[in-house]
Simulated assay, not measured.
Amino acid sequence: MYNSRISGLGFYVPDNIVTNNDLTKIMETTDEWIVERTGINERRHITKGEDTTTSMGVKAARVAMERAGVSATEIDFVVFATLSPDYYFPGPGVLVQRDLGLNTVGALDIRNQCSGFVYALSIADQYVRSGMYKNILVIGSEVHSQGLDMTTRGRAVSVIFGDGAGAAIVSRSTDDSKILSTHLHSEGQHAEELAVTAPGMGGRWVTDILAENNPEDVSFYPVMNGQFVFKNAVQRFSEVIMEGLKQNGLQVSDIDMLIPHQANLRISQFIQQKFGLTDDQVFNNIQKYGNTTAASIPIALTEAWEAGKIKKGDVVVLAAFGSGFTWASAIIKW
């Protein structure tokens, strides 16, 4: 058995900044209302025709590969996490293989929404541990802006989300730096509390939506029971962080950096207060980017590392909760 480590990080966000004040021009909302409920000041939206989920992932991947000192020929496998693929099928993993000019390596697509990157990281970790692969490209990338109800009707959800991508190279470890453990959970009984239910093969398909031509149909927009999601998120965040620490014989005081999924600043602040962590022990950037779902953790992790907030030997904790419900954590010795 081998150990794995994150050998390179990168991220990409579109140039187009959409502020809360920009949103007030297209829906009934205010900067104060958005900040109070989410902590978000601005987010990035793609310019249609310029960026896609795949192209952003490729741009983030190139940075991560350069930092890891890994060439295209040295990538053994691709794991791509997203809820917003370029196509209904195939998934973006194979598009990354093509666009980066990788060998005919395997490409796996992950559909675990906000928990997607930690799930993908866990898969990469296990493949490297087993000895099957040496260098795995893990990407989380999302284009939300093209699928949101950008009207007053949809404001409770649409103000939260942004576009962007993050990537990591998971490689065989040659020293004490390693992913210590990962922890994955799900609770499907609450699937519809945060979901996009159409189009879907088991319900209303594209042909049904087109035939009905109902302007009041919102089934293809995301819906969220905000208070219910918040209540479950703070509980599951706490549980899965403690699960990881306990398995590795660590205490909360051992955490050097917590990177929570950037779902809502209020959730992150709740967890920080509950665990008694300082501002230097928790990294948040939702204020700038909104909730970028599978991309949020790798973007935040990269920014924290670039800012010198993560150093060799640090205990880094990643934690996520989202649609499914799914939740996950990773404990890393940097």
Rank of each mutant, 00 (worst) to 15 (best):
E50F: 05
R43E: 00
S177Q: 08
V218K: 15
N103E: 10
H185F: 12
I267V: 12
M65Y: 15
T54S: 08
K59Y: 10
N232D: 12
V58G: 04
E193S: 07
S84E: 11
R62N: 04
H45I: 00
R62K: 12
S145T: 00
F275N: 01
K288Y: 15
A168S: 12
F321E: 04
T197V: 08
I26P: 15
Y289Q: 06
G154M: 10
Q146E: 12
G290R: 06
R98K: 09
L23G: 03
T302P: 15
T151K: 15
F283T: 07
F77P: 01
V138F: 15
D15C: 09
H183N: 10
T19S: 14
V218A: 09
A328H: 09
N213W: 11
G166Q: 05
G39Q: 01
R153L: 10
V196I: 08
G154L: 08
E239G: 08
V138P: 15
G116Y: 14
I169V: 13
M65H: 11
A211D: 13
L265G: 13
I332P: 00
V252G: 05
N3S: 09
S71K: 11
S186C: 06
F161G: 02
Q227F: 10
M201N: 12
N21K: 11
D31F: 12
T30W: 10
A191R: 13
L83H: 15
F270A: 09
R204H: 13
N103R: 12
Q235H: 14
T38N: 08
I255K: 08
N213L: 02
W327Q: 05
P92V: 04
A107S: 13
A211H: 14
K178R: 11
K333F: 15
Q126W: 07
W305P: 03
N232A: 03
S4W: 14
I331E: 04
N135V: 03
A294N: 08
G93Q: 12
S186A: 05
E28W: 14
N103A: 12
R62S: 07
G313I: 00
G106L: 08
I46L: 04
Q247V: 05
G69C: 00
G226C: 07
G290L: 04
G140H: 09
I136P: 07
G188Q: 09
A233I: 04
T24S: 11
M1V: 07
P260S: 09
V58R: 04
K25I: 00
S173H: 08
A328E: 06
M132L: 06
I40H: 03
G116P: 13
I271G: 11
V18K: 10
G131H: 01
E28D: 14
I286F: 14
S4L: 08
D109T: 03
D176R: 09
A330N: 05
G10N: 05
T151G: 12
I26V: 11
G166A: 03
D314R: 00
L9F: 13
Q262K: 09
S238A: 09
